[in-house]
Design a protein around this nucleic acid. Structure first.
Length: 639
DNA sequence: ATACGATTTTTTTTT
DNA sequence: AAAATCGTAT
């Protein structure tokens, strides 16, 4: 022991047991607000105190942000910086492993990562090339392909089975669908790119097929800790098992009641099967809730009890009593939004800091009306979720140049670049790509062959850009690209070009932090939802999807748009166990609140298909115990 | 044949 | 509000 942390004093007995006895296979069932993060932080500190080296620890978290937060808390606790610990998401860790060993699988080290957006675009291209126009009408969408592939790989089941069981309407196209998958994989290979799921699958294959690599990592990681285990997929679970196979110190923390990512292959089964797979495993429970008032907890507990699957457990509150949660109904989304804005103003007047107030919703576009209402009252807010910074067209346009600089075979990036030039469309871009991918970019020379004047002038401009950016830093290169015509392109092609301009200026700032392109693309490729900081936003009200709110907490939480078809979402009705997952999502929303919880619902809601329609109040509200909340039918609000 | 603007359709949640 | 599709101009 070399620090003076009094673990026994700073933790409750349940937490202390996990921290001090967490060797071997351990499953920690940690309810919402039970100090799960705290426990993990102390566990890491404890291990280091015991003389475990930082680089022998692997900490898998759900987001990069969570990992950074945890590690900095460990540092604060120990009072010294720590170096060499592996922390991050599954995708990160796999990327890190692959950057070192990917050539073993025939993938060059300078592979690029394609995001969901790119993956869909690539599927779309493949479908256009492979499927006749006739068939395309009843053919699954690119998004569906990406979804099905991810699901199959993550659940480790053949996509054929999933299709047969759950999407039999596409059964006619069996053969063609397989063909599309093959072609998609082929094109990725040719362009040296990997999608998100490839990262996991490749790393898994690498560890399975190359015993020396497996030996190396499983030897290295004496302790493996996994957060948010309820949202890991089967593939991910197998992956950490391999990494922990040597020392057999695998501690996983999760809450089956908060499993909300089954759409991307996560399954509660991982939790339920853990003790079967590892008979020596010990199970710990953290059931004391430090976050919320008993009133909030009563409501949340009552809601989740309507689920049949999962451990039945009730969280115990230690906070003192507070106010009853409020359920309020409005005739329109506008009124609902106005009410929330008004209430926020009230809480702000009471002295609640803006950053302690959050509004949660099921889907991103439900926040549009609310944003107007907040702007109307001059309330600062930050948006989480929605369009991600690096997925926006203008950001991708500019970064495409850097991508091909790093890896000239990146087909999609070339496509992007080329189609920006007038006179070049998909076809010409394709032909030019075949030339460009194996030519010296720093010295393009004349374009051989019969090409139009427009194409030739585009060729010259591209040639100029690539000769000029040789040897420049990412920042300087990007600046040059912007100045050689992109600003004009932006103005001509986007209505809202001023806000996009700000994004690009922010991008420049961001790039200053990077020396080499490899680390840049590893970071960008995996950067989860991340938005350009809005104004001096660190102290602003938070708007967020429920998914993005996972693991966070606020004094005041609004849950808006709680209407049948929105929350629970109508798409969930046809999914098996869909409603239960939606209910867990609702449970996550409710348990974010420390003191004040306000659930709101409009009676009239809009849908892009029907225009307007009357919405029934969500069954999630109907099933709440009547003594658990105060019903509010507010008078119409002016303005 | 191709590019590009106009029109129609489509949207859950995310690494 | 963004993407897929369609129809017309080059």
């Amino acid at each position: 022991m070399n620090t003076s942390i009094d673990y026994r004093k700073e933790l409750n007995p349940e937490q202390y047991r996990v921290v001090s006895e967490g060797d071997g296979y351990c499953l920690v069932l940690a309810g919402a607000g039970s100090g799960k993060t705290r426990t993990l932080v102390y566990r890491v500190a404890y291990l280091l105190d015991q003389g475990v080296r930082a680089d022998e620890i692997l900490l898998v978290t759900f987001t990069i942000k969570a990992s950074r937060e945890m590690l900095s808390r460990v540092e604060r606790l120990l009072g010294r910086p720590l170096d060499g610990i592996w922390g991050g998401t599954f995708h990160h860790i796999c990327n890190r492993i692959l950057r070192k060993f990917s050539p073993r699988l025939g993938v060059p080290q300078n592979y690029l990562i394609v995001d969901e957006e790119d993956a869909r675009a690539l599927f779309s291209q493949v479908i256009r090339d492979v499927v006749s126009q006739e068939l395309r009408k009843s053919f699954p969408s690119p998004g569906f392909f990406s979804y099905l592939r991810g699901l199959a790989l993550n659940t480790m089941r053949p996509w054929e089975d999933l299709l047969r069981e759950r999407f039999s309407e596409y059964a006619d196209h069996f053969f063609l669908i397989g063909h599309v998958f093959d072609e998609y994989n082929k094109r990725k290979r040719e362009a040296d790119v990997l999608d998100f799921d490839d990262l996991l699958v490749m790393a898994y294959r690498l560890l399975n097929e190359h015993s020396d690599v497996r030996e190396y990592y499983s030897q290295k990681f004496r302790y493996v800790l996994v957060d948010e285990y309820q949202d890991t997929s089967r593939l991910q679970a197998r992956l950490v098992e391999i990494l922990a196979s040597k020392h057999k110190n695998l501690l996983v923390v999760g809450d089956d009641a908060q499993s909300i990512y089954s759409f991307r292959g996560a399954s509660v089964e991982n939790i339920l099967e853990f003790t079967d797979r590892h008979p020596s495993a010990r199970v710990f429970f953290l059931n004391t809730n430090y976050r919320s008032t008993p009133e909030v907890l009563y409501l949340a507990n009552s809601s989740i009890e309507n689920n049949f699957r999962g451990y039945q457990k009730r969280l115990k509150a230690v906070q003192g009593g507070g106010e009853l949660p409020i359920v309020a109904r409005f005739s329109s989304v506008e009124e609902e939004s106005a009410f929330i804005a008004q209430q926020i103003e009230f809480f702000l007047d009471e002295g609640v800091p803006p950053s302690q107030i959050a509004v949660l919703f099921r889907t991103t576009y439900h926040s549009a009306k609310l944003e107007l209402a907040l702007a109307h009252r001059g309330i600062d807010y930050v948006m989480r979720g929605g369009m991600r910074f690096f997925e926006q067209a203008h950001i991708k346009d500019v970064l495409a140049y850097l991508r091909v600089l790093y890896n000239p075979k990146d087909h999609m990036a070339w496509q992007r670049i080329l189609c920006m030039y007038p006179g070049i469309g998909p076809q010409t871009a394709k032909r030019l790509y075949l030339i460009l991918r194996d030519v010296d970019l720093s010295n393009l020379g004349e374009l051989e062959g019969r090409w139009g004047t427009k194409v030739k002038s585009a060729w010259e401009r591209i040639g100029y850009i690539f000769s000029a950016i040789q040897g420049l830093s990412a920042y300087e290169a990007c600046k040059l690209i912007l100045d050689s015509g992109y600003w004009d392109y932006l103005r001509e092609n986007f209505e809202d070009y001023t806000s996009r301009q700000e994004d690009l200026i922010y991008l420049l700032e961001f790039l200053k932090g990077y020396r080499d392109l490899e680390s840049l693309f590893s970071d960008i490729g995996l950067s989860e939802s991340f938005k350009r900081p809005q104004k001096e936003s660190s102290d602003a009200v938070v708007l967020s999807t429920v998914h993005q709110a996972k693991g966070l907490e606020w004094e005041v939480v609004f849950v808006m748009g709680v209407v049948d078809g929105q929350f629970p979402h109508s798409k969930s009705f046809r999914e098996e166990n869909g409603i239960e997952e939606e209910r867990r999502l609702f449970y996550v929303a409710l348990t974010r609140a420390k003191r004040h919880l306000l659930i709101t619902a409009p009676t009239m809601s809009f849908d892009y298909r029907f225009g307007g329609y009357f919405a029934r109040r969500s069954s999630f509200i109907e099933e709440l115990p009547r003594d658990g909340y105060r019903e509010l039918n507010p008078l119409p609000i002016d303005g």
